[in-house]
Design a protein around this nucleic acid. Structure first.
Lengths: 277, 277
DNA sequence: TATACTAATGACTGTTCGGTCATTTGTCAA
DNA sequence: TTGACAAATGACCGAACAGTCATTAGTATA
């Protein structure tokens, strides 16, 4: 086994137990039976190690569930197989899965956040593909909610068999979740995550948008909308972006004017982030 | 505002952004505009601070959802009101909610784990009460799965409005989750979390069980079961607990014999933990 | 003003952290 | 056996950590 692999396996075990932040490089090298220097030959930093782990295992996870969705031709078995594949993958690499679930929210590192976001989108794509194949037009308005439910189910139940040392019947679990997914797909009608909201969520969060870009988007929006309150609010906000002059409370009010207009949620979000509110 | 409150609010903000481990006492005191010494007058340690935060806010959260369940007499509104109350509470104390969601898995501190477990059980109890009132006997076999689904929904969607700076329509979200909960309660039939599994999950995990206790449980089980394989396995395991004599692989095999017997999951779990496997 | 007492300070301690690098060890071909 | 090179070491660094305590500032009473 290469030194890199040895380190990764040792780190995996310790990260799973204690979390990333709470595990020191010293502990990892001691556990792997190597020196501290050897660690820094294999990895440039502790951060590079966790990024390596995430890459390695998430790619495997994604390729496994993708394989199921692409190759299981029997629609009646698909959902079940999907959950089974997901949970098997989690079980096979339970140490990694623990880290993944723990660090999903915890992470501070910028690179890691965007990496996670990227993989999350890939997973969404696979789930969406599966749901659209199974239910097609029937779930046109609820498909994004369904994606979140599927991911929520996996997360919630993965928690159980990862953090409790109890014997689980994974096949029964998969059946149960397949049934739940089917029920929601067939019967649920209320849309919470609309197409537009989903797009907004998937935008890179903090990616520094320039003044020019935001002005351009505002101008475009001004041409689109007709309602006078919204138009005027947008024009005032545009001026404010170009040359800050309004007090914070007024800006908030103008943003509130946009809030209820169906097509202005995104721009309201962008502006709020851009202006640091 | 008392010094204690001032510290708690400052800490809340920083913990929400960076997590508990990554935030130093120095940062907290600087942010609060006080000295390091003043911090240690108000709190004995950094750990005591987070425990204080958890206690303060979780008790409030729990009392709020409990109030809704106990006082909303219209069954048709109950689910909706429940989700609304939960999300409002999360929104009102969004900094705390972020910490709560982050530290749910991350925490290493022993006291904090058992505290979280305690509050989790309280929340379960409230949800169960609500579900039983609404659906009674219809959900006898699926009620524990429903609890997990409800908690999963809250977690999954809370993630959205906590970590994305997007304007959400919480009332629509509550309606949508109420519909989903209703659908699952009315139509889902497969039980994954059985009464027994639920009990096992809610046992204190590592609480050191004595040899006497485990022997007693085994003996009780031996009398219950009839199948000879299981009986003999239990008897051998009992001997092994009293006087270790079997190799690890044999013990594993004996435990595997119990695995499929429906009433032996708990004992298999206890033994595995007790024997350190 | 003098005294007594509490509240608050921040320099300090002992550790531990991630990361570096001069030195040693191991492994080749010559 | 030698010399050249790579692999590995662990003592060491500055920084940051949680927590302490002698000292000072602030306040109320006599």
């Amino acid at each position: 086994m290469s030194k890199k692999q040895l380190i990764m396996e040792s780190a995996l075990e310790l990260f799973a137990k204690q979390g990333f932040e709470a595990t020191s490089v010293q502990q990892i090298t001691e556990h792997a039976g190597i020196s501290k220097g050897a660690f820094y030959i294999a990895f440039k930093s502790k951060d590079e190690l966790i990024i390596g782990l995430i890459d390695h295992f998430l790619l495997e996870f994604i390729s496994e569930i993708d394989h199921v969705v692409k190759n299981q031709n029997d629609d009646h078995k698909l959902l079940n197989e999907f959950y089974t594949a997901a949970f098997h993958s989690f079980q096979k690499h339970s140490d990694f899965a623990k880290i993944f679930i723990k660090e999903q929210t915890q992470t501070v590192n910028e690179d890691l956040i965007s990496k996670m976001h990227h993989y999350d989108k890939l997973i969404d794509k696979i789930i969406l593909q599966m749901l659209e194949r199974l239910y097609g037009e029937d779930i046109r308005s609820t498909k994004y909610d369904l994606i979140f439910c599927v991911k929520g189910f996996i997360n919630t139940y993965a928690h159980l068999f990862l953090f409790f040392n109890v014997p689980f019947n994974l096949s029964l679990l998969s059946q149960s979740l397949a049934e739940k997914t089917y029920l929601l797909a067939r019967h649920s009608e209320i849309t919470f995550i609309s197409e537009e909201l989903y797009q907004t969520l998937n935008e890179p969060w903090d990616e520094n948008i320039t003044e020019e870009q935001i002005i351009e988007i505002i101008e475009q929006k001004i041409e689109e909308v007709e309602e006078s309150t919204v138009r005027e609010s947008l024009m005032l906000l545009k001026q404010h972006v170009q040359e800050p002059s309004l007090s914070q409370v007024i800006v908030k009010g103008l943003l509130a004017n946009l809030k209820d207009h169906p097509n202005c949620k995104q721009i309201s979000y962008l502006l709020r982030n851009y202006l640091g509110l």
